[in-house]
Amino acid sequence: MTAPTTRRAWLRGGLTTAAGLAVASCDKLTQSPQVNATLDGAESLNRRLHGLFVGRSALAREYDRSAISPDFRANGTTNPDSEEYQALAAGGFADWRLQIGGLVERPLSLSLADLQAAPARSQITRHDCVEGWSSIAQWRGARLGPLLTRAGLKPQARYIAFFCADTLELTLDGSGDYYETIAIADAFHPQTILAYEMNDAPLPVAHGAPIRLRLERQLGYKMAKYVMRIEAIDSFETLGRGRGGYWEDRGYQWYAGI
């Protein structure tokens, strides 16, 4: 009768040890750079596959007015506290200028009125937050593609970077300032706009006044609010901590199509 008892004890001991080892090694595993680099491979695969199967121009679904959310949540910064931004907001953004520069032939400096006069698009789309919730709103804004064409992208340009007025984390080196980078192809997608209007009213401060990026086929954190400056760049390694965005620097995926 000892055999089953021994076996059971051995099993129980083995399982307890395995569970203990699993928990201890879990922490090591989740913090290992090699493991994380391997796991990130899936994100590159998703990006390539989406490029192949979703295509460059497939449109995100657009909705009826009746679908608009009455309780669209404002996430991240809801009112940038810098003196510069507060002064611009107090003046109704009359003094605000959007700089479009970097790897372009003709840098632009655009007022809100200039943007409103540029080729525009209006769309009622769903905003998918990385946290899991979604809300629907109507957006109107200047299409980014024609603006970049006007500025004239240099051939080495590979990404478009957005620099924002909000600081989410106070750091000495400024790496807590919000910024984002997106692929050129996504910048020229017909639904990619610099929105200055939300639900038929000027874009509220909580949602990124005077303009926020709308990148409808990707997650909310890609859609930078309070955009002050846009640059065409060939690499984002020298920006922030080098991962292509405020949240990307803190472990989020750069592509964010899932």
């Binding site: 922490d27 989740t30 899936a42 946290e131 949240w247 472990g251």
Partner: peptide, 15 residues
């Protein structure tokens, strides 16, 4: 992982 880390959770999930 054990600590709250959405980015890391998503990395494991999608792989």
């Amino acid at each position: 992982p054990g600590e709250l880390d959405l980015g890391a959770g998503r990395r494991w999930h999608f792989f």
